[in-house]
Structure formats: C-alpha cells, structure tokens
Design a protein around this nucleic acid. Sequence first.
DNA 1: CATGAATGAGCTTTCATTCAT
DNA 2: GATGAATGAAAGCTCATTCAT
Lengths: 234, 234, 234, 234
Amino acid sequence: MPTTKLCEIAATLRAKRARRKEARPGELLAAALELFVEKGFAATRAEEIAKRAGVSKGTLFLYFSSKEELFKAVVRENISGRFPEWQAQFESFEGSTSDLLRYAMTSWWSLVGDTPAAGISKLMMSEASNFPDLAAFYEREVIEPGDALIQRILERGMQRGEFRSIDLKYGSYTVLAPMLFLAMWKRSFGSNVSPRTQLVPEEYLAVQVETILYGLRVTPKQRSSPTSTQESNQ
Amino acid sequence: MPTTKLCEIAATLRAKRARRKEARPGELLAAALELFVEKGFAATRAEEIAKRAGVSKGTLFLYFSSKEELFKAVVRENISGRFPEWQAQFESFEGSTSDLLRYAMTSWWSLVGDTPAAGISKLMMSEASNFPDLAAFYEREVIEPGDALIQRILERGMQRGEFRSIDLKYGSYTVLAPMLFLAMWKRSFGSNVSPRTQLVPEEYLAVQVETILYGLRVTPKQRSSPTSTQESNQ
Amino acid sequence: MPTTKLCEIAATLRAKRARRKEARPGELLAAALELFVEKGFAATRAEEIAKRAGVSKGTLFLYFSSKEELFKAVVRENISGRFPEWQAQFESFEGSTSDLLRYAMTSWWSLVGDTPAAGISKLMMSEASNFPDLAAFYEREVIEPGDALIQRILERGMQRGEFRSIDLKYGSYTVLAPMLFLAMWKRSFGSNVSPRTQLVPEEYLAVQVETILYGLRVTPKQRSSPTSTQESNQ
Amino acid sequence: MPTTKLCEIAATLRAKRARRKEARPGELLAAALELFVEKGFAATRAEEIAKRAGVSKGTLFLYFSSKEELFKAVVRENISGRFPEWQAQFESFEGSTSDLLRYAMTSWWSLVGDTPAAGISKLMMSEASNFPDLAAFYEREVIEPGDALIQRILERGMQRGEFRSIDLKYGSYTVLAPMLFLAMWKRSFGSNVSPRTQLVPEEYLAVQVETILYGLRVTPKQRSSPTSTQESNQ
DNA sequence: CATGAATGAGCTTTCATTCAT
DNA sequence: GATGAATGAAAGCTCATTCAT
C-alpha cells in the first residue's frame, strides 16, 4: 500500500534526520573539548569549534546558547557526569583500601588523566580568574565532588584501621595534587621538553602511590611525626 | 611669555624623561609580570600594562615590538636563578634531612610560592604550549635546577640512612607536586572560590610535609610496599 | 501495528491540515499584526510570528516570500474601509453637531483607537519612510477617507451655524491630531512609563473634546482671533 | 631660537590635534542624529554613523561607550539641553499669555519641529517599546520637562485670568498633541504623499493655535461645556 | 504541503598596533 | 623619544531565509 510505504519512508527519513540532530550536540561537545583543551577557553573561537564539528557558526548556537554554556556542557559531559559511576565503583570495592587507592590512582590516568577530559582541569586553572562564573560552576560540579570522592576513600581506610588518622580536607590533596600536577604537566611541558625532563605517567604515578601509601600507613607505635628534630636519632 | 614657560616646562619634562628612559623597560616588565600573573596573557590588555607602568600605550610598543615579545621578556627576566643561593643554603644545612626538607618546603611558600616569581610558573603552565621556545628556556633555567635541588636533598636523606631508597627522578615530584599545585591553585581558584574549598597554605603544606616524611621514612623491616593485597591484614 | 497507527494519525493530521490550509494566511496575518504593532517591524522575529500562528518558520515563507511582503500584506489587509459604515452612521445622526463630534471622538477610542486597527496607524507612522508604496496605499485608503469624514462633520457644524467658520483642511487635524496622538502614545510609551506620565484615554479624550468644542464654538461677535496682540486691549 | 620654534610648532600641532579631538564628539553626534532620524535606532549601524562622521568604527566607541550611550548623548545635545534656555525665554516673556502660547507654538516649528531634533520624538515613538532603558531616559529627560514647560504657560494664563480653568495634565496635551503630530506626520507621510494630503506646517500650526486659544479663552459666563445637548441651539 | 535543522551575512564591541603630532 | 587618537581585524551572537527530509 502506498500509504504504508510513504509512512515508512517518512519514518526512515525522520529517523535519519533525528539521528543527525541527536548527534550534533555530541559532535560539538567533542570538537569543543579538543579545542578548549588545545587553546584555552578564551582563545578558542566559536566558529572554529563549529567548523571542526562540521557545522556552521549558527548551528553551534542552535544547540548551546553561548560559549560559556557550551563549556559547561563539556565539563558536565566529561567530568561531573562521571562521578556517580566512579563513586559506585569505589563504593563496591571489596579489597583493602590501599588497593582501592592504588587502583583509583593508576586507573585514573588511563580513564581520565590521559584523555582530553583532564585537559579541562588545566584549562580551568588557567582561566578561572577571568571567568568567575565558570570557576564557581567548576568548583561546584568538579572540585567538590572530586574532593569528596577521595575523602571517602581516606575515611574508609581510617575506619578499617588501614590508614593512620589524618586531616581529611588537606589529606585529600595528598592524593589529588600528584594527579592534577601530572595532568597539567603533560599538557604544558609534556611534549615540548627534553627527554630528560619527560615524565612517564605510569612510572610517575607508581612512585607517588607507593609514597602516599607509605605515608598513610598505620605504624605500630604512632608518633606525631616520623623524624622530628627532637628525636632525630630515633 | 607663555611660550617660554611652555618651553621651560618641556625642558624639565625632557630631563625627567631622560632620567627615566633606562628605567622604562624595567617598569614595564614589572607591571606586565603582575598583570600577566593576575589575569593571564590573553586577558591582560596592553594599555593596562602601560598605565600601571606610568607610560602611554605607544611607549610600550616602543620598547617591545609586540605583546608576545613583552611576555617573553617578562618570563626571561623573572625566572632568573636564585637556585645557586638556595643550593648553598641547603648544602650547609646541619640538621636531619627531615628537618631540611621540612624547612625547604615550609619556607618555600613565603620565599617563593607566595611571590610573583611563582606566578611565572603558573603562567608557564598555562601558556607553555603557545610559546614552545619559552618552554625550553624555562625547562633549562627552572625545571632542571629545581629538580636537581630536591633530588640533592632526597639523596642526602638516603645517604644518611634517614630516607628509604626511592627513585630519585620521580621521587622529587613527590616533593614538588604539592608545592607547585599549591602555587597554581592559589592563583587560579584561590580567591574566587567558596571558603569550603579554600586552602590555607601553611596548613596545607604542613599536612603534605608530614605525609611525605612519613612516606620516605626508613622502616625497621623495609618492605616493598606498605600494604599490598597479599599482606593486607599485616 | 505501529505503522498503521502512525499512518492513521498522519491521515488525520493531513485532513486537519487541509482544512486549515486556507486559514493559514489569515492566521499568519493576525499574528503578524499583533506583533508588528507591539514591537515594530525590525524587532519582530519571523519565527515568533510563525509560532503565534501555530505553524513553523518554514510555513511562513511558504505563504509570504519575505518578511517585508508579510508586512505589506498585514497593512493592506487591515486598513480596509470601515469608513462607509461610519459615514452612514454619522450621516444619519440627528443631534447637535457638538454631540456628533463628541460621540465620534469618545466612541472612536473603544471602537478603533484601542483595537489593533489603530496599531496599523502607529506602524505606518513608524515605517512609512521605509515602505513608500505602502504609504501611498495608506494615504488613499485611510488618510483621505478619514479626513473626509471629519471634514463632513465640521461642515455640518458650520452649515448649521453651530461651529464658527474655519479652514476645513487644517481644521480636521484639530480633531484628528489628538486622537492619532493618543493611539501612538499608548502604543509606544503607554506601558513602559511611570504612572505620572500615563494617560487615561477616557480622561484625555474628554479634555480634548471639550477644548475643541470650545474652540469651534460660534461666538456672538466672531473675531478673527480671541486675543491677538493688536487688539489685546479689546 | 630653535627651541622656541620647536615649542611653537609643537603647540600648534597640539592645538590642531586638540581641535580635532574636541570636534569628534560633535561630528559623531551630528551624524548619529541624522541617521537615527533617517533610519531608526535599531536599523542604524554603528559603522555607518562613524563613516558619515569621517572616522572609523573603533573611533566611535572611543567617544561613546555604546550605541545606546550615543543615542542618549544625541537626545541630551538636541533636546534636554535646550529646555533651560526655552524656559528662561518663556519665563521672561512680557506680553499676553495668548501671545506667549502663539509664539511658543509657531517658533517651535522652526526651532525644533523642522530640525532633525524633532525626528528624535518620532524615533522614540517607534522604538520605545523595544528599548525600555531609552524610553525611561527619554521620559525623564524630555517628556516630563516638556510637559512642565507647557503646563507653566497654561498656569500663567489661568493665573492672569486669560485662560479658563482646565485640567493641567491633560490640558498640556491639547498644546503638545498638534505639535508632535505634525512632527511625526512630516517625517512619515510628509514627503511620500500626494500634494492634496500635504500639510503646510505654518498654516497647519496657525489653525491649531487659534483653535486652541479659542478653546482656552475665558468667556463672559463660563459654562461647563460650550454646546451641550440641552442647549444645542443656543 | 509542512517542517525545522542549517546557514551565513551582519551587528555591536574590543583591543593590539600604528603613526601624525 | 613619547603620546594617544585612530584604526580595523576579529569575536560572540542573531535571525531571515533555504532546503533536505
């Protein structure tokens, strides 16, 4: 029947169109992520993002009302959105907390640090002071949840008697600093620097993890400090 | 006669001007340093630099052919080596290496981290990819000497039996990462972030130092790892 | 089967669509009238007109080749002649010409001034210079008949000895100006102005009517002017 | 003496430059006035104003921080700024109030109505609803002072027993409406309309003035209304 | 016929850079 | 040398118009 046929064709076409429409935001987000990471927020022109996504300038603003909104969407897509998943993964972890932390830090590199997503962190460090709105958004959507995630792990270790008791707020940075530093380093000096100064992420992280775990470890007789002046000849 | 008067004033100004002539580039560099560090390269307007240096926009371009050249000059000018001086200081240190490291890290904030000099590091992290030649310069003049300095301290600890044996190259980042991270953090999110997320540098560093020292400490029976899976319930 | 269902729905829609087909231009014109009057030609977006008419942007351009053409159609459509009807009404008026004029002016607000029809006048005043052909059309269809209508009333008053003798052509504007001014005012400053400057149409018109009638009244010894300089000490 | 000469040359140059700098805002305001009146606020491009003033786009924004500010400056220059002068002139008028009003209305045409300044009023009528900020500014700077000016004249007439007692607020529009109507008319249909419908400003105004004065005149036995139904054939 | 995704010219505004003075 | 008025190339964003579906 012709009617049926027309309906089918129309449906197919509509599907194809719909598929394209649904794909646009993703393509734009991907292009934006690349370019923001590559050149920074301010230095990335909207038209360039559009071109890389294979659409025109106007189309970009059809899907994202402004460059700032596009940036926020990039952050949500690549970072904020993943926290629940990570948290669930960590929540259901069965092994020792040392293993959990080791897993968290080493898997972070391949899952996040080595992807453009981590470039966002570098970008924010550079541009936060020029875009207070974005900074506030990033704090709310990334910094605080990320911090909480690490604090949860440290707490677990302390509750299970695996880690010594430390300040949670600043302790979390013991874990975060080496990771974020690596992410920034690779994106700034990573490729323009002599081999001597190159960091091999896996090796770098392995050393940091072990030192951190050493530093968090519970000791037989816990002292306030390992080697203070007074007890220098322990 | 007004003309005479104008001429006299002009002469006075010319004298003053001449006196200042050689000071100009320095004043411009100082102003540029402050502003680049504060707002980033792209967001700093040339006119603002000129105004802060007390000259006109045109004068800036008289001394530096472009904003980029000014930026390069700022970096070159400000990452000079205080390293020899520091190295001497550390070389002659008499106490335990723990104390030396503790001293190095806590004094670093007030002597370097909190000064515009550390702003350069943030600047370089942000802009390195846009200025590859500067990155190389920075590597040679800052990264490598700084690295060496920390490695010297770690080596001292290991030689004196205070620190456990660790990989020197990556171990140095155990010390550097928290410091550089702090320097960047304060300059990006430091002031635009809710009190919850604020970092108090002294407290932050205290926690990092102790954890690092804990992590470096020699233990009675040194094991490859503090809490590996196999021996999780030590 | 879903396909059948879709087809049925589509068929229903098609029927509805067909029924509406000839209504489309009218709905678009009505929506356009409202919006053009409300916001002016340039500030009215084509999509908004389409949305208010319940169709898509594309459909608008199916019926009108451009926004300009739509505007012209709106004007042409809406300045149709209610003049014959009015003229008949005024022709058969039985009372004094003062009453006729009072009736004409006070009823005008509710019957014309406060309706979209008067919005067209505002529109034309604003856009006439950009649409000369429309201006000519408007002159022929509105200005001249309207003028004639008022002149007829004034003539009646003069013929019946109720009004003093005045120039008909310019005298008609004594009546028209306050009305058209009100129509424009309400549509431009009417709603965006402080209460102090607001005009209450009925009160405004009442004052204008009485002053006009006072000004048209026949006086015992008609003088060329009430208080001219030459005869100031009459 | 060469120094003197140099000084003189420098002074001349500086003067020339200064003269140019001081002339710029005036040239821009004149160009803006013309174009705003000609094409409306929204339809006038900033670059076009600059070009007509003989400068580049950038220069416009050197003197006026935005298009809106430029518009406000145009209004201040051409309307608001003149009220004090007008008021003083009217305040010191010595003759009868009829003569004052006659003078005010007839001189208004040549001094304001026939100049581009009056185009501003037409412009505001068209664009007020789209630019609420400008509308508020215009109300404050033009409508209210203008209204006050007319009310002052009416009050003078009433106080001196020349005019009958009328509502001041709405009465002022008896005077304003014919003037503003003329200003708008000339600028919309004025030049695109058949000679039949053309208004000769002087004749138009003469008729309006006399009718208004007639309507305001104190009568021997003041009645509420000149020709009410009851007394239709007086 | 109808849709709405896509386009790109056009607008205001910014700012590094130039150059007459 | 020094100035700052002037420039014009971008950049973000809008919207009338087109056209594949």
